[in-house]
């Protein structure tokens, strides 16, 4: 069962309601598949508040197992890079080969590098 609806909860609920999407704002879901593994973006969903977003995330993205931890984040809280600027923003300078760590061998058994 969930906790008491405190004034803080109410304020949080009102803040959520100001997010894009009205009563059903959008949340981004991140799932972790094992200890030490990164939380990876799994998708998005609608929910009235954070608790419900967690429950929905559990049902939508974790119901078939393989998940040990979930994060939900209001989609509006994410600041994204602009696609129009992807050139200057991301071009790594392919001529600078020394930026790419590919000159040493990775020992066998090292995963997730």
């Amino acid at each position: 069962m969930t906790g008491t609806m405190t004034n803080a909860d109410r304020e949080a609920a009102e803040q959520v309601r100001d997010l894009p999407g009205g009563d059903w704002p959008l949340w981004e879901v991140f799932t972790q598949s094992g200890q030490g593994a990164p939380h990876e973006h799994a998708g998005s969903l609608h929910a009235a508040d954070a608790e419900q977003a967690l429950q929905n995330a559990r049902d939508v993205y974790a119901r078939r197992g393989g998940v040990i931890s979930l994060w939900v984040v209001p989609s509006g809280a994410i600041t994204a890079s602009s696609p129009g600027e992807s050139g200057p923003f991301f071009d790594p300078g392919a001529d600078k080969a020394y930026r790419h760590p590919q000159f040493y061998k990775v020992p066998r058994g090292v995963r997730g590098l």
């Binding site: 059903w24 969903l45 609608h46 929910a47 429950q55 929905n56 049902d59 939508v60 119901r63």
Partner: peptide, 11 residues
């Protein structure tokens, strides 16, 4: 009422 709740109830 919404897709997410539909999945929750079926689950």
């Amino acid at each position: 009422p919404i897709l997410e709740e539909d999945i929750a109830l079926a689950n």
